[in-house]
Computed example of a mutant assay.
Amino acid sequence: MIKNHKLIEKSILQQVAIVLLIIIAIMGSAFMVVNQVFNYRHDYRGYNNLMKEKDDLNAEWGRLLIEQQTFGATAQIGSRAVTQLRMYSPPATQTVVISTK
């Protein structure tokens, strides 16, 4: 009887130990899931900030390209006026200043 009683106690202790190990494993797994979700959200927020910055930089790049084309067109218009239309700035002797008083 004593042997059976000790075997039953040992069996119960083993079962309790197994249940405790399972509970610890489940809790550890839950904490790791929470940590992964936190890290994902943190990284995703950083990704969104970088994408917004990329969009802002692309918009600025577009504005700079338009500005560059505008300045390039001004020089091109001046050179075409001289070469194709034979336009020139008149000398001071041919310039008349009109005053409106």
Score class of each variant (00 low, 15 high):
Glu53Tyr: 03
Phe38Trp: 04
Val33Thr: 04
Asp43Arg: 11
Tyr40Ile: 08
Glu9Val: 04
Ser29Val: 04
Ala59His: 12
Ala25Val: 10
Met32Lys: 11
Asn49Gln: 12
Ile26Leu: 15
Lys52Val: 11
Ala30Tyr: 07
Val16Met: 06
Asn39Asp: 09
Lys3Pro: 14
Leu65Asp: 13
Tyr44Leu: 05
Gln14Val: 01
Met51Ser: 12
Val97Trp: 01
Val96Lys: 00
Ser79Leu: 10
Val37Leu: 12
Arg41Ile: 03
Val33Ala: 13
Ser99Met: 00
Val34Gly: 14
Asn49Tyr: 10
Leu65Arg: 11
Asn4Met: 06
Leu65Ser: 11
Lys52Gly: 06
Glu60Asp: 07
Phe31Glu: 12
Gln14Lys: 09
Ile18Leu: 12
Thr95Lys: 06
Ala25Ile: 15
Asn58Ala: 14
Arg80Trp: 02
Asn58Asp: 13
Ser29Pro: 01
Phe38Gln: 05
Ala73Val: 00
Asp56Glu: 11
Ala92Gly: 10
Arg63Ala: 15
Pro91Lys: 10
Gly28Gln: 07
Leu7Phe: 12
Tyr40Phe: 08
Arg63Thr: 15
His5Asn: 11
Gly72Ile: 01
Ala59Leu: 09
Gln68Ser: 07
Tyr88Phe: 11
Trp61Ile: 14
Gln94Pro: 02
Val82Arg: 07
Leu7Glu: 13
Leu64His: 02
Thr93Met: 08
Leu57Gly: 02
Gln76Arg: 12
Val82Asp: 06
Asp43Lys: 09
Leu21Asp: 12
Tyr88Glu: 03
Ala30Gly: 14
Ile12Trp: 03
Thr93Leu: 03
Leu7Pro: 10
Val37Ile: 13
Lys52Trp: 02
Thr100Arg: 05
Thr100Asp: 04
Lys52Asp: 10
Glu60Cys: 01
Ala92Ile: 15
Asp55His: 05
Ser29Trp: 01
Arg80Gly: 05
Gly46Trp: 00
Ile77Glu: 03
Arg80Thr: 04
Val96Arg: 03
Leu7Gly: 09
Val33Met: 05
Thr74Ile: 07
Asn49Lys: 08
Ile2Thr: 08
Asp55Glu: 10
Leu21Trp: 07
Leu13Gln: 15
Ala75Glu: 07
Arg41Met: 05
Ala17Trp: 13
Gly72Trp: 02
Val33Pro: 01
Asp55Arg: 00
Leu7Ile: 07
Tyr44Ala: 09
Thr100Ala: 06
Gly62Pro: 01
Ser79Thr: 14
Val82Tyr: 09
Gln68Arg: 06
Thr70Asp: 03
Gln84Asn: 02
Gly78Arg: 08
Val34Trp: 05
Val33Lys: 05
Lys3Asn: 15
Arg86Asn: 11
Arg45Gly: 02
Ser89Tyr: 15
Tyr88His: 05
Asp43Gln: 11
Phe71Glu: 11
Leu57Val: 09
Ile8Val: 01
Arg86Met: 07
Tyr47Lys: 04
Ala17Phe: 04
Ser29Ile: 00
Ile18Lys: 12
Phe71Ser: 02
Asn48Phe: 03
Asn4His: 12
Gln76Lys: 08
Leu21Met: 09
Ala30Cys: 14
Met1Lys: 15
Tyr40Arg: 08
Ala92Asp: 09
Thr70Arg: 07
Gln69Ser: 04
Pro90Cys: 01
Asn58Tyr: 09
Arg45Cys: 00
Val16Arg: 10
Met51Gly: 02
Gln69Phe: 03
Thr100Pro: 09
Arg86Val: 07
Gln76Ser: 12
Ala30Arg: 02
Glu67Tyr: 03
Pro90Phe: 02
Arg41Trp: 04
